[in-house]
Amino acid sequence: PVYLSVKADNSMFIGNDPVTDETMITALNALTEGKKDTTIFFRADKTVDYETLMKVMDTLHQAGYLKIGLVG
């Protein structure tokens, strides 16, 4: 499974590897070998604001990742 996490300080990680807004999709493409039907499990600290969550989800959708599971 692929886990994308947003921490309380808005830092992002794919698994244990830090990513930025600019590198997130490139890292996901490498990890999933470009398979856009891969489910991305998205988790965020409860203090992360809604705007940040939606920005990340919008970026995922624009890149073609449509299977996003929200996890606690």
Rank of each mutant, 00 (worst) to 15 (best):
K7Y: 15
A27Y: 13
D17T: 14
A30E: 10
K46Q: 12
L28C: 03
G69P: 04
D45E: 09
T26A: 13
D49K: 14
D37F: 05
L60K: 00
G64R: 02
S11G: 05
H61R: 15
H61G: 07
N29M: 07
A44L: 10
A8G: 11
D45C: 06
T38M: 09
E22I: 09
V19S: 02
G64K: 02
D58S: 12
D49F: 06
V56I: 14
N29K: 06
M57W: 09
K55Q: 07
L66R: 09
L28N: 00
P1V: 12
M54Y: 08
T20R: 04
D17G: 05
L4P: 01
K46H: 12
E33P: 02
A63Y: 07
P18A: 10
I40T: 00
F41Y: 13
F13N: 03
M24W: 07
S5K: 07
L70M: 12
Y3D: 03
R43Y: 15
R43Q: 14
D37S: 09
D45M: 03
L53M: 08
K55A: 08
D9H: 08
V6R: 03
A44F: 13
T39M: 15
L28Q: 00
T47F: 12
N10Y: 12
V71A: 11
F41K: 04
R43F: 15
I68G: 03
N29G: 05
V6Y: 07
Y50C: 15
A8P: 05
V19Q: 03
G64N: 02
F41N: 05
N29A: 07
M24T: 01
T32Y: 04
A30I: 13
G72C: 13
H61T: 11
D45N: 05
L53W: 07
K7W: 10
V48C: 06
D58M: 12
V71M: 11
V6G: 01
G69V: 15
F13L: 07
N29F: 07
E33Q: 14
K7A: 09
A44S: 08
G72S: 12
T47E: 14
L60I: 06
D21R: 14
T52V: 14
L60V: 04
K36Y: 08
E33V: 08
E22K: 11
A63C: 02
I25Q: 02
K36V: 07
V6E: 00
T39F: 14
E51N: 12
G72L: 13
L31A: 12
G34D: 06
D37E: 09
T39S: 06
A8L: 06
A44P: 10
A44K: 04
T23A: 05
Y65N: 00
G64E: 02
A30Q: 12
A30S: 09
I68T: 05
M54N: 07
N29W: 06
R43G: 06
V6M: 12
D58Q: 13
G64A: 01
V56E: 00
S5L: 13
G69D: 15
L70Y: 11
L70W: 14
Y50D: 08
L70F: 14
K35M: 07
R43E: 13
E33A: 12
D17F: 13
N29R: 07
M24I: 13
V56Y: 08
F42Q: 00
K67W: 08
V48E: 02
T47R: 11
V48F: 04
K46Y: 11
Y3R: 04
L31F: 07
P18Y: 09
P1C: 13
K55N: 08
